[in-house]
Design a protein around this nucleic acid. Structure first.
Lengths: 157, 157
DNA sequence: CTGTGTATCTTACTAACTAAGATATTTATC
DNA sequence: GATAAATATCTTAGTTAGTAAGATACACAG
């Protein structure tokens, strides 16, 4: 196998990763727009949907300041997607919980994406799917490691 | 093969796609921060690097308004990554060209990511890489189609 | 009880973005 | 060739998400 061909494959994979990722971002933005909220809000809502989260935990997860998170929760609350709840164990904390009514709006918006994903995946064997999953995990972890390396380099100077 | 297991695989793939995409976005943001520009600017620069582009073409490619693009180009020019050039064929147009000096700064910042990608890919056979590439293309095109469907639904109401 | 740390909110400010319109140039029509 | 319409960018004003710093309220250790 020529190494030139492999280089081309690498380049094509790199481009495909970026393009695929870009399309995903565009889709998220479109969903957020249809919900009347911002991409940032939707990203936070994604965390909230996994279970009640403290405001501070959201800030850490998203990299936003706590001040910004206050605004995010305000907007999500106003739009009917979430509510603030006091934490009985720690009254400083504000737990944010997703509202079922809001959830119902979101599901259908992701339906086209889900259908398309299902259609793509159907043709692969289980073994092939495992190969792809492994690749994605490696890409994810590799990117995280690269990010850490980049930031370490930044600190050193 | 149980369909439950396949469903789990689908869910895992979905999650992995999003996580991988998210890591990529984070990496881009970090690179932009180190360059002293914004993610938006870096995204535009990415287009500019492929060859001189008209300001309006950038607006269309990124979905920003022409007014916003003016600001982007201002910042890229100020930071030494690009220059405005008149288009000899159409004097209304402003062509934006990448500057080699700026390019030199960018390369090293993507190096950790590239190394990590290389390391991940090395272990796969050519056939496997082609399988992954095909999957990514399908995911990309599927997402684009889903986006179109979503927006078509939005219009119909 | 007191001091220190933690969690969220508030306030003031910055800056990217949009929308609308101004300016300059090209293209089409009579 | 003059005039109208379309195109391409820039400018201006206003909106708003986000940051930074500090206020407020609570937790917990000594």
């Amino acid at each position: 196998m020529s190494s030139r061909k492999r280089d081309e494959l690498y380049a094509a994979l790199n481009a495909a990763m970026r393009e695929t990722s870009g399309q995903g971002v565009l889709y998220s933005q479109a969903v957020a727009a249809r919900l009347g909220i911002h991409s940032t809000d939707l990203e936070c809502l994604d965390w909230i949907l996994r279970g009640p989260v403290a405001a501070g935990a959201l800030a850490e997860a998203t990299g936003l300041t706590t001040g910004a998170i206050t605004g995010v929760i305000d907007r999500l609350e106003k739009a009917g997607f979430a509510t603030r709840e006091p934490d009985p164990n720690d009254r400083r904390k504000v737990m944010v919980r997703a509202l079922p009514a809001g959830l119902k709006q979101i599901g259908p918006l992701f339906a086209p994406m889900e259908r398309s994903a299902m259609a793509s995946l159907a043709k692969y064997s289980e073994k092939e799917l495992l190969l792809i999953l492994d690749f994605l995990h490696q890409a994810r972890d590799g990117a995280a490691a690269a990010l850490a390396e980049l930031q370490a380099k930044a600190k050193r100077r």
